[in-house]
Nucleic acid binder design. Structure first.
Length: 255
DNA sequence: GAAAATGTTATCAT
DNA sequence: TATGATAACATTTT
């Protein structure tokens, strides 16, 4: 469930919890649940893959990592919740297999909302600037960098690179300006496509690269490989996706 | 039933 | 000390 668009769906489902007061907090988290009881929820927010429950003097941060899940006004049958928030109205939010943390600083001091691809505050010019500051970064790693593209995960990474026909091992600095702009634009555009498709339960059928075996453009088999510093699976067409890379420079003679 | 997977962080090694 | 690779964690689907 963890990419940014999925968190937006959770935020929308949980919007009605704003204004409610937490009367009971249970679960197997080691976090101090008592601290949550009696707190009035100021807002439910997201930043990238983070789900934030803003309280008057601190915030609760839920991160679902790879396997996390949640239920709104329901419970899973078998697994115990990591954290269950029960409100005065009887509504409850249940989180499973997730990371639970408290944030004691103001959220605006912790989060750069302009880096969140799902946010109204998303700033593509800032993403471009950050990419240009690290020209040796591989495209497959750049898209997963949460400081640049908060909310982008492995699915979005693979689909964006396929869309813009860029090989995952291309370096950011070697991309023509138009391709770099397209990478930034599609990181956001695909994320919103993802959101719409996920809401309609048709996300997977729109995958063109991720976990696919054949390129729908040229009919050649797609390549699957663990690439980059992030060591995540890339799915790509080595025929349709162009590799942009600076030629390795020979060492300067004489030292 | 093994393997892989929408991810991050702690730990070890250099 | 800082950087980078590896391990650890944990659940559902293929």
């Amino acid at each position: 469930m963890p990419e940014g668009p999925s968190l937006v769906i959770l935020r929308e489902q949980a919007a009605g919890f704003a204004g409610q007061t937490i009367v009971r907090a249970e679960g197997n988290t080691s976090a101090d649940k008592k601290r949550l009881e009696g707190q009035r929820i100021v807002a439910v927010r997201t930043w990238g893959k983070h789900f934030l429950v803003e309280l008057p003097h601190f915030a609760l941060r839920i991160h679902f990592l790879l396997f996390g899940s949640y239920r709104v006004n329901e419970r899973k049958d078998h697994s115990p919740p990591r954290l269950s928030l029960q409100c005065d109205s009887g509504d409850e939010l249940n989180f499973y297999t997730c990371s639970v943390k408290f944030i004691d600083e103001p959220l605006d001091a912790v989060y750069d909302w302009q880096a969140d691809v799902m946010s109204d505050a998303w700033n593509p010019a800032l993403a471009l600037k950050r990419l240009r500051a690290a020209p040796d970064t591989l495209a497959c790693d750049a898209l997963l960098d949460q400081d640049v593209f908060a909310g982008v995960g492995n699915i979005i990474k693979n689909e964006v690179l396929y869309r813009i026909r860029v090989h995952p091992l291309s370096t950011v600095g070697a991309l023509p300006a138009a391709q770099l702009r397209a990478l930034v634009a599609q990181a956001r555009q695909y994320s919103f496509d993802f959101l719409a498709w996920k809401k309609d339960f048709v996300l997977k059928q729109h995958w063109l690269a991720h976990r696919q075996s054949v390129c729908r453009r040229c009919d050649l088999p797609l390549t699957k490989a663990t690439l980059g510093k992030t060591r995540r699976q890339s799915y790509f067409c080595s025929h349709c996706q162009r590799l942009y890379s600076d030629a390795p420079r020979a060492a300067a003679p004489g030292g």
